[in-house]
Design a protein around this nucleic acid. Sequence first.
DNA 1: GCCTCAGATTGCATCGATGAATGCAGCGTT
DNA 2: AACGCTGCATTCATCGATGCAATCTGAGGC
Lengths: 334, 334
Amino acid sequence: MSSRLKDVAARAGVSVRTVSNVVSGSAPVAPETRRRVQEVIDELGYRPNLAARSLRAGRTGIIGLAIPELHSPYFGELAGLLVDGAQRRSWTVVIDQTRGDADAERRLLVPGGGRMVDGLIISPWALDPAELAATEPAVPLVLLGERSPHGAADHVAVDNVAAADEATSHLIGLGHRRIAAIGLQPHLHNGTARLRAEGYRRALDRAGLPHEPAAQRSTAALHRADGARTMAELLDGPSAPDAVFAFSDELALGALHVAHQRGLRVPEDIAIVGFDDIEDGRYSHPALTTIAPDKQQIAERSLQCLADRVYSPGNTVPPQQLVVPHRLIRRGTT
Amino acid sequence: MSSRLKDVAARAGVSVRTVSNVVSGSAPVAPETRRRVQEVIDELGYRPNLAARSLRAGRTGIIGLAIPELHSPYFGELAGLLVDGAQRRSWTVVIDQTRGDADAERRLLVPGGGRMVDGLIISPWALDPAELAATEPAVPLVLLGERSPHGAADHVAVDNVAAADEATSHLIGLGHRRIAAIGLQPHLHNGTARLRAEGYRRALDRAGLPHEPAAQRSTAALHRADGARTMAELLDGPSAPDAVFAFSDELALGALHVAHQRGLRVPEDIAIVGFDDIEDGRYSHPALTTIAPDKQQIAERSLQCLADRVYSPGNTVPPQQLVVPHRLIRRGTT
DNA sequence: GCCTCAGATTGCATCGATGAATGCAGCGTT
DNA sequence: AACGCTGCATTCATCGATGCAATCTGAGGC
């Protein structure tokens, strides 16, 4: 079926090692020999066995990407950038979906859950940061969207507190006073949502506005449906907000949908700011004001972290905390 | 660093083979021995080397997924379903993005482009179907969205002609007469777009409506931006349409965006039908009428095809042409 | 007491590729 | 003529796990 170095060698009348040299170019081969071997390679359609190479080399050239879900636009876009960057480095990416499940995230970290990867980029959602920090990962790890001071992993994230502050302050600056926050995740050990809530409150504090518990809404997940449901609750509640800061663009788009259904004008009756800058937001009606993390940089720096750890045997670089820039993009919903 | 069977064996005072038996359960082991070995395994944090296993087994448990782009919602959703299904089968998925580039697609098929995968699910976009059919793939192949009678690969797709016919007929039934089609791809060897155009024309024929060349618009890709640009061209043209059938929901959402910008009422002034049933379309304003392919089935049947071929050594099943059901979902844009 | 048999354990070979060391011409130097 | 050197090719061992067959042990049957 599939031919091996041995088959090529036999047919070309040379040793296995010589064929290997022709294929990988690791030692000089005489032009005439090279030609003859190459001919047989083409003839037999020889293809190196990557499993064997990986075993010998101790590296597979595969990195893992673990995200809550691929179908959410933010993670889809990020995954796309990561796959591209990996391709440029001749790596391959295997993807795992954790579905916001702590067990699924845990499984990827502990020994045995490994997937033949040289390194892992993981966006933890449900896992306790303390547990994360305590885990001795089987391979180099890059954590997205978290910032915990401990642990052996690199961290890549925007400054969530500052970004959320900026978004909220933007609404305050436009004259809004009853500003709701959508997307808290108190049921999960979720660092990202906690930091965004913190930034939201900080902005309120600075403006001397009160923290209304009823205006800080938890959601099961960060999907459009959650945003829609929560927006409906807010509008049906005793004091409807005049602005909403949603922790994700998906939440924001769900909220926007309900605002339209209720006949509210956006941004006149209610303003909305999202977070992520997904492509849908640029084409919604009106287009969505949002916080745009530099996804390209998130991808690139994550890969760079892995490159440093996987390829530097000394590996003396201490764990890094990389902060990626973000910016507020003002569009039609504010 | 990482421990091997040998290390565990030495420490537990048994042979390598016995440890292997404990790990994989392929031969009976005495309870007491099992306990002792397991203890050492836990203590050392032993993790089997999957590259070695793959080499021995001849299979890696990895399948490839090659799609034009991960960040597009349709492919993101599909990839998510495929990753889930693979996880259920204890497979891993590596993802390649072809970016609608024929060379990228070709590279994945020819020997040498392989990625250590047991099989490949590919959604060809730019590649010539004839070339595809002529290629002898290095591993079992499942083609998504194409239907060509030749070649050794399985095909999984909706009936694109019937679906496009249905979408167009829906518009005709609502009284629309000047129906544009957006998303033809004459610059690529793209079977899917060709079939949808065919269905569109068939519906027009049945209703006795003329084929207006100016109403059949090619686009560079199927993104929102392409839909927006094309919609603007249509509206600025000599005879603006009263309805649009877009070959993807993304195109449709871009078109919808422009309709809003121009102050047109949807669906009163112009109706829109999309294709794919991506989640955004359910939350747009108004919500998007669309053709919904059964993505869950596409994923499941594709995986089943691979399972049959990778695991059945006899492999006498002839290439299959699987047609997956679809349905028209009527929402607010018609 | 001897033989059989099942269960438990082991050594050896192997999957396919590559690092390290070695063999071996041919050529220039001294 | 002896020596070292360079360029090319070969042999051997190894990466870590597992299939295969052989071995070992103790229990049970006659």
